[in-house]
Each structure stands twice: as C-alpha cells, then as structure tokens.
C-alpha cells in the first residue's frame, strides 16, 4: 500500500526511492535527456557562451497566492539565467524532503514545476531527492541549477551601467515580498495579494530584440529594488538617481505596507526585472516591455549619473530628496 507521506525509506535509494521517483517525478518531468535516469545527463552545448546559475528555495509558506515553492524554483532560476541575456535551456533540481511531508502536496509542487518548465521552454535534465528526519527541514527545500546560452555579441552585467543610461522596471514593486509576509506572520490580513512569480525569458527576449543598447538586467528578489540598485551602483561605480513618483506600486501592496510599516522598495519581487539601457533607447525599451503581458506596468524610473559613485538618490514624491540605502536587517512588521 503506497504511503501518503514521505518516509525515511524513500530516501534510502532502494525500492521505495525508485517507487517514489517513478510515481511522482519521472512521469511529470519526462524528457529524452532525463528518462534514462542515469547518474548524469549528457548534453551537447550549442555554440556561444553559457550562462549558469544556482539557487535554493526555502520559502515559508510553501504554497501561497500566485504559486508555490515549485513554480517559484523554476521561475527564479530561469530569471537568474536570462538576466545575463541568455536563452535558458536546462535545469537541474535537488529536493530535500522532510519525513512526514504529504505526498499529495509534493505532487502539487512537482506538477507546477513541470508546468512552469514547459511554459519557460526549459528541460529538467537531472534531479535528486533526499529525505531527512522530521524537524530537520521545514517540509521541502529545493535547490536548482540553470543553464542557458548567450547569443553572440551580447554582454550584460551589473558592472556595465554607464552615466546617461536610463533605469526602467518591468512592473510594480514589492508584490511577492508582501504576499509572503502577510501569510507568514499570520497577520490575519484580508487583502487581494498575489505573488508576481513568473519566468521572464519571453520578456527579456522581446526587450533584447528591440534594443541593442541594454547594459544591465537584474531581477530584484531579496532586498528588493533598493538593494539591487545599490549593488549595481557599487559594481558599476556610478550614481543612480530615481523619481519616487515614477516607481509603480500596486495600491493594495501600498495599503498593506502602510499598515505594517514596510517599504515596498525593500520587498522581494519574483517576476520583475530592472533594466539599465542607453539613454537614447529608453523609450524603445519601455515600449517593448509594455507590449509583453509581464511588462504592462513597466516604467522609466530614473537615470545613471557620473557621481557620487555607489550612491542611489531618490527624488521623493512630495519634492524632497533622500538616499535610498541598501536593506539592513530583515523587513518585519513594526509598530512605529
């Protein structure tokens, strides 16, 4: 009688492991490269340089409005790979499952991973599953590796921002972070919040097809817009100047942030990108982003300046000015 929860035997590599892999993973991830279930997949890299990234997903709760840890793992890895301009090709996935995890929940997560991979046009070529005793992991952790190929002549990186460049975002800030926080802290908030988790490879492809002057692409995940812009300003040794009024924030996200004393510019996004492009191509980039379903709210939010290097300055909505610093500590609801 097949168990409905994960048992330690599922991790032992014997009959139970094979049964689990066959029942849950193999069918849903099936493709010629993975099907042999050999020790390793054999890949023939296409011409061009490869972009490779690894990530680990420990989100709590594992299921949230707008997705779950499975879809998030695919989206997050695909996004990291294509932020260097690459076309994502392959993913590997490693699971750490806690003894007692419901197999129905695991199935839901694996199904949404398979769907997300198909939507992004990537193939899961290798996988691994380990089981740990109850309490040694929180239900499920997922580690991934993503590989993509960078078209000839394209070079994007956080060190390539230049004075005169324009700074754009592909949509509203803070959606994912506030959605997770509102669930996790059990703040019994009743708000139509939804994670923005999504693969951005289509959006990136359209953007790069329309503009050859893109210098930097970054997905502002942990630490949010402010932290990622500070990283870019430091790495490129440039200053970045923003207009707060131009930065899109969903009204509901703003409402929750007001209630909890949070700043949406420091909350994670899982389906947005920051684009830094030659000043002359700002409008072209904006048009390309807005033409894509995931870029409807795109906006030009500022520009890159010469000095002072490493500083992000923001003109506030009411006409003042202030530094937009990196996140310190963890965003927690506050009373004052």
């Amino acid at each position: 009688m097949a168990s409905d929860t994960i048992l330690l035997d599922h991790g032992a590599g014997g009959r139970a492991s094979h049964e689990l892999v066959g029942r849950i993973f193999a069918g849903r991830f099936s493709n010629p490269l993975l099907d042999p279930l050999d020790d390793a997949a054999v890949l023939t890299p296409p011409p061009g340089r490869l972009s490779i990234s690894t990530d680990t997903f420990v989100v709590d709760p594992v299921v949230f409005p707008g997705g779950n840890i499975g879809s998030l793992a695919v989206h997050g890895t695909v996004n990291d790979v294509c932020m260097r301009g690459a076309k994502p090709l392959w993913l590997t996935v490693g699971f750490v499952l806690e003894e007692g995890l419901s197999i129905a929940l695991l199935t839901t997560i694996v199904e949404s991973m398979a769907r997300a991979a198909t939507e992004a046009g990537v193939v899961i070529v290798a996988g691994d599953t380990k089981v740990v005793g109850r309490g040694q992991a929180d239900k499920i952790f997922i580690n991934t590796c993503g590989i993509g190929v960078i078209p000839e002549g394209l070079d994007l990186g956080a060190h390539l921002a230049r004075p005169g460049d324009a700074v754009l975002v592909s949509g509203s800030m803070g959606d994912h972070g506030v959605t997770i926080l509102a669930q996790r802290e059990g703040l019994n908030l009743d708000a139509p919040l939804k994670s923005d988790s999504a693969s951005l490879n289509g959006l990136v492809a359209d953007l790069l097809a329309a503009c050859d002057g893109v210098h930097v692409l970054r997905d502002p995940t942990r630490g949010g817009l402010a932290t990622t812009l500070n990283e870019i300003a430091a790495t490129s040794r440039v200053a970045i100047e923003l207009q707060e009024g131009a930065i899109p924030v969903d009204p509901v996200v703003q409402g929750v942030c007001e209630l909890l004393g949070l700043d949406p510019f420091y909350l994670a996004n899982e389906g947005k990108l920051i684009c830094i492009v030659q000043g002359g191509q700002a409008q072209a980039a904006l048009t390309a982003l807005r033409a894509h379903p995931l870029g409807g709210n795109a906006a030009i939010i500022g520009q890159v300046k010469e000095a002072p290097a490493g500083r992000v300055w923001m003109h506030t909505r009411v006409g003042g000015g202030r530094i937009l610093d990196m996140l310190s500590g963890e965003p927690l609801p506050r009373i004052c």
């Binding site: 700043d263 923001m314 003109h315 506030t316 909505r317 009411v318 006409g319 003042g320 000015g321 202030r322 004052c336």
Partner: peptide, 17 residues
C-alpha cells in the same frame, strides 16, 4: 518627539525642502 515623525521626515526627504 516621535520616531514616526523622524521616519516621515527622512523617508520623504523633507529636510532637503
């Protein structure tokens, strides 16, 4: 005399105005 005023002044950049 209130931390939230300190935050509001800083967050909206009022000092520069």
């Amino acid at each position: 005399l209130c931390g939230t005023h300190t935050m509001a002044i800083a967050r909206h950049g009022l000092t520069s105005m």
